[in-house]
Computed example of a mutant assay.
Amino acid sequence: MSEPMSPSGQRKDDHLRLAQEQQTAPPVRNDFDEVQLVHHALAGLDADRVHLDVEVLGHAWSAPLYINGMTGGTERTARVNRALAIAARETGIAMASGSVSIALDDPSAAPGFRVIREENPDGFVMANLGIGRSGDEARRAVELLGADALQIHLNSVQETVMPEGTRDFSRWPHALEEVVAASPVPVLVKEVGFGLSRRTLSRLHDMGVQIADVSGVGGTDFARIENARRPGEDYSFLAGHGQSAVCSLLDAPDPAPLLLASGGVRTPLDVVKSLALGARAAGVAGVFLRAAYDGDPEHATTVIRGWLSQLTELLALFGADSPAALSRTDLLLRGRVREFCELSGLDPTSFARRGDLSPAPDPLPTTATPPRSRTTT
């Protein structure tokens, strides 16, 4: 007879199930639908000229696409992580784990995360840890996965709705500074689906954070997930709270950390829009969770390969021979996104003629190093 699951383990499995339920619900519009790429019928390229590689944190990523942090720590979630890790290995894209906090507190949960590195020994892997942990715990999280970077997630809205969540956010800035100073690898700060504001990005830059994932509203909604776990109090009014990835990218300050985008990325076209708005790469969780939910790496691999093929074809369609060249694409901002720009003092019309005015971008650095080889024991 198996031992009963810990409360933390039960929460992990609940999150996985409820996130999958959101993915199988009828699709809804989000702010990516308010961004239109202007079609220029004679602007296309030969797809053979297109390259997808980008430089991130001194490493060459083969594509501006990565599997974002989702899960881990239980037998059920380990099967999903294994399928995703194999898919990352077979397609060459980067991958983040779910929060490893459970494994730091309970070593028996560690195999559900180690499987990522075991199945993908040479890939770019990011460990994930909630804010508020110590510098020593950050080092342990990196060691657990042999990680190339450490994601620290900010989730104050989720914690507010979570029945067992914290209500004291006052220590978070100091804790983040401690982790940035102590981590042996670069620290990537991300939201969990509520967006990073201009003020937050400026503060992260001042703290020495090199890279941030704006992770906006429009994808998996952790306010809804945690509300579904609450017996009694109803926080449904927080569903949809926050800024989208689109609005977070538009309002990003200069200087700011290098920006990644996630939250509501449903198609390769959403990836293209993220890149055109200034992200270096886009992270996908929900769609890839659906592909790996049954633990089938072949299905997940097929889905990701399809995205990479379509990304190449879309760049050729829009006349961009590289992800960086999308910064010259003409964009029309409509609806809620246009309203956000106007209320924030931004000019939404300035994106409509970029191809006429913008010089070609500088080529990406060629000194990036590939992920280091590892020997799995």
Rank of each mutant, 00 (worst) to 15 (best):
Q243K: 05
E21D: 12
V303R: 01
L238A: 09
P111F: 09
R290C: 01
L196W: 09
A109Y: 11
G130P: 13
M207H: 03
A85I: 08
V35T: 08
W307K: 04
N81G: 12
P255E: 05
L364R: 13
V187R: 07
E191G: 08
G165A: 15
L357H: 11
G146H: 14
T302D: 10
G146A: 12
Q210F: 01
Q158N: 08
G9L: 01
L201P: 14
A325G: 08
A300S: 05
A352L: 00
M1S: 08
R229D: 04
H59C: 04
G69H: 12
G240P: 10
H59L: 02
D296A: 00
P231W: 06
D136P: 06
Q36N: 00
D251Q: 03
V192D: 08
E342D: 04
S344C: 10
T369P: 02
A60R: 15
D168F: 11
S248F: 09
R199D: 14
G345W: 10
D294S: 11
A43E: 14
L150M: 05
A252M: 09
S274P: 11
A291P: 01
A281E: 03
A127D: 11
D53S: 15
L150N: 04
E339M: 04
L42P: 00
V115A: 15
V125W: 05
R49N: 12
D251A: 13
D13N: 14
P363C: 05
N227T: 08
D347S: 09
D31I: 05
S350V: 14
Y235N: 12
A360G: 07
A88I: 03
N68M: 04
E191Q: 12
A41R: 02
S236E: 09
D136V: 14
Y235L: 04
R372A: 15
L311K: 02
T166G: 15
D13H: 07
A279R: 02
G132A: 14
G345Y: 13
V35Y: 04
